[in-house]
Design a protein around this nucleic acid. Structure first.
Lengths: 325, 325
DNA sequence: TTGTATGCGTTATCAT
DNA sequence: ATGATAACGCATACAA
């Protein structure tokens, strides 16, 4: 592979001049510029980007941390991030954590080792105080509804959204309400629990732990919930479900188990991914793709101006009525 | 940021010794090793991986080229690739092409510029002869059923699979068969067309261009096909559809348009993604995730032994009967 | 077992 | 407008 030195020799100019041509600097005569281009052509020159990275101390890459890419929510989110990133010539490097915190730490080490210029956490499992350790290694953006002054974040207001869902359910006459969340310990889930507890208090119902289902992320989880629902001595009459995928699994399993939806059990979920429309699931739309776009924009602002104020950006959600309520 | 030199000074050893400790080389006395570790601790040392990359001429990163990550097929494929990659400490960098060839070229330039050690094409649009130009810049693996001696590939045998689908349809009494494919010009699609033409000849039916639908990838495409189907003066009685997503859109739109499936129209699709089960779609399962795993393994073999013979790996498919036939 | 010297390919600084 | 040279941070052949 020809390098910048070979080009310089071939074109009869200095290395510096070649570098100037490479980087569109002014102050290069047309003749020399042409000579450099010719030499690059002849020698099939490609610049070694690792050398650029080392020299500049930047890579134009951003780390994207998520549990799995194979899920509509993260697929849409990354799609949004990628769309915004490509406009600025920034590449995405993927860190699939499978919910393991040590994988998140690996990603952070990459930030510290300047393999990436920054990180967007699509989902976070490691404690915030551990994260703050990496605060000065580059911009970190969170996609979650969490109270903290250290990192910018982008999300919907999960507490409000969950509350809206509960309001809608009670408005429709349901009061024996259970719910499903992804991971009990995430910020988003804690917000939801708070909304739930508040609402139960408001309508004079008690919180029933056996009506709360944890680890509900994909379709199979929904099936499991439905089977467990059936075994419940006292059953809820409605479920608020934090992901369309899970709701889809519930609806499908309900059909097998001859549970009528919404007669026996009403379901309201979140996301409004394509599957929700296909299966007629009532849901609260989360602008996932837009979330990704905004997450990147936020990252980019902080990348170029580290003094950008830490903001918590909230995007709107909206309820979509279909036939599971 | 402290560098290797600072550590050497602090620990009172040479740079080489530090490097040896860093890379787990033998022949370092315990005292010095300890001293180095202590210095690294004290100075909060992290090694700059870009420097490692430059020095080694490798990055331990692999480029993954695909049109969009936000689609179950590519989601599963990447999931498989990632699973295998992580075992070998290799990172994924994502190139979303949106089906634009210049984006694929950008990815290839990154290979040439040694930003990535190799590339897996989950979907390819640029011509093969252009691709061969990059043959010596690093291993390139294709996930398509294409005849060529230059690159290893991993796929199912689309011609046979499509033929199986057609056989099954005719066995069930359908002969007025149309089909949907993703992109007319891909290798996979051309294989399918061949299978279709052969079968039509075999059963004495002519190929009807208006029964062939191009650009069928996602759900919305399926809706479109269904509407166009309804406007057809003469209608097929069955469709072979190259993606569950599209089939799902068709089934959903059919319901709206009061077309009975399978009475008015039978549908057999490919993939067996979760949505196929949820919607009861008969489909031919493609082991997408396994495809990804094998694609990575193939890449990895070629990375470490460039003389590995170029192979075309074929994975099995299987038909799953549900209720759209 | 340890260290010296050199290379990796580019950018940046400072002269001229 | 152009060029010589010093970083950038690490790995490694070679010497000791």
């Amino acid at each position: 592979m020809a390098n910048i030195r070979d080009i310089a020799k071939q074109a009869g100019v200095s290395i510096t001049t070649v570098s100037r041509v490479l980087n569109d600097h002014p102050y290069v005569s047309e003749e020399k510029r042409a000579a450099v281009f010719r030499a690059m052509q002849e020698l099939q020159y490609r610049r070694n980007i690792n050398a650029v990275h080392l020299s500049k101390g930047k890579t134009n890459m951003i780390g994207v941390v998520l549990p799995t890419i194979n899920h509509p929510y993260f697929g849409e989110l990354v799609d949004g991030i990628a769309e915004a990133a490509i406009e600025h010539g920034i590449q995405l490097i993927l860190f699939q954590t499978n919910y393991e915190t040590h994988r998140e730490l690996e990603a952070l080490e990459q930030l510290r080792g300047s393999v990436v210029d920054g990180i967007i956490f699509c989902s976070r499992a490691i404690p915030l105080d551990m994260l703050t350790t990496f605060k000065h290694d580059g911009p970190i953006v969170l996609c979650e509804d969490v109270e903290q002054p250290y990192f910018p974040s982008v999300s919907i207001c999960h507490e409000k959204a969950f509350r809206s869902g509960l309001d809608y359910l009670t408005l429709k006459g349901y009061e024996r309400i259970g719910y499903c969340i992804g991971r009990k310990d995430t910020a988003n889930s804690m917000k939801r629990r708070k909304a739930y507890e508040d609402k139960m208090r408001e309508i004079g119902r008690e919180v029933r732990e056996e009506w709360i289902f944890d680890r509900c992320i994909n379709i199979e989880d929904g099936r499991r919930v439905m089977r467990e629902y059936l075994a419940l001595p006292e059953k809820p009459d409605a479920f608020l479900v934090s992901a369309d995928q899970t709701a889809a699994g519930m609806v499908h399993e309900a059909k097998q188990l001859r549970v009528s939806i919404p007669e026996d059990l009403a379901i309201l979920s979140f996301d409004n991914h394509p599957i929700a429309e296909l299966m007629g699931i009532s849901t609260i739309e989360i602008p996932t793709r837009e979330l990704g776009i905004q997450a990147f924009r936020t990252f980019f602002k902080h990348l170029h101006d580290p003094d950008t104020p830490i903001e918590k950006l909230m995007l709107p959600y909206r309820l979509i009525e279909r036939s599971t309520i």
